[in-house]
């Protein structure tokens, strides 16, 4: 039971807003010691963990080209483009993005979209452009909310689309674990089929919340324009 103290370290650390890197480092060391690992083993665990998880950081390779294009006005052009589609409000645009993200993941194209590849350079300026066309410059709080929702559309679409695809990690993990542990034979196709109801629900629920965002923006901006002064975007 005592190894669960490591979990407690994480919870307290995040709750008191310490730097997450320190929290995780301390939690790892504490849990390792409580679990009976030697200092050398703990260091090796940190090293192996870093080496085996490099794939989550590889998106950094896209930053130079995205940064280069942003210097030449990529985000501005994304705003200009959305201005031509008068019917495409922020909420409708993000719902469209959610649907595309989900369909892409369902056919195995997980890395085609992502926060660095599509959300920052394309989805966010388009969502903001659609809102600005209607409401003028956005106060910072509204901008934050809108960007948070753009990030959420990417995540929800990915999580509840990918399990419909047969060869994705989570499906293979399920079949691998169950077939070796319990000596049965589960077909990936059956697992993928049972992911469809939740996938439909995810699109309906999150899509509905994204569509409602339009009305929320309107309300937020009415109070914001009446009260606090408008803060210009930093970029």
């Amino acid at each position: 039971m005592i190894v669960l103290l490591g979990v407690l370290v994480v919870v307290i650390g995040f709750a008191t807003k310490r730097n997450p890197l320190l929290v995780v480092g301390v939690a790892g060391i504490v849990t390792g010691f409580l679990g009976g690992l030697s200092p050398g083993k703990i260091l090796a665990a940190f090293g192996e963990g870093f080496a085996n998880s490099r794939a989550v950081t590889i998106f950094a390779i896209t930053l130079p080209v995205i940064g280069l294009l942003e210097r030449y006005g990529l985000q501005e052009q994304a705003r200009n483009l959305i201005a031509r589609f008068a019917g495409l409000t922020t909420g409708r645009f993000l719902t469209l993005y959610l649907g595309l993200r989900q369909l892409g993941a369902a056919v195995g194209l997980n890395n085609v979209f992502g926060p660095a590849q599509t959300v920052r350079p394309l989805a966010v300026p388009m969502a903001e452009g659609a809102a600005e066309r209607k409401h003028g410059p956005l106060p910072e709080r509204t901008r934050e909310k809108l960007r948070s929702f753009a990030a959420s559309a990417d995540n929800v679409g990915l999580f509840f689309g990918e399990d419909v695809f047969l060869a994705v990690g989570s499906i293979l993990l399920i079949t691998g674990f169950v077939n070796t542990s319990y000596g049965t034979h589960l077909e990936p196709l059956h697992l993928a089929l049972w992911a469809i109801p939740t996938a439909v629900c995810a699109f309906v629920v999150h899509g509905w919340r994204l569509l409602r965002l339009d009305r929320q923006l309107e309300r937020d901006l009415l109070t914001a324009h009446a009260g606090t002064p408008v803060v210009e975007a930093t970029q």
Partner: peptide, 17 residues
């Protein structure tokens, strides 16, 4: 942070959490 967390997950695993 993501890579640090992957490490923590592995340590949790071997420590029996």
């Amino acid at each position: 942070l993501p890579q640090m967390l992957a490490t923590l997950g592995a340590i949790f695993q071997v420590s029996g959490v």
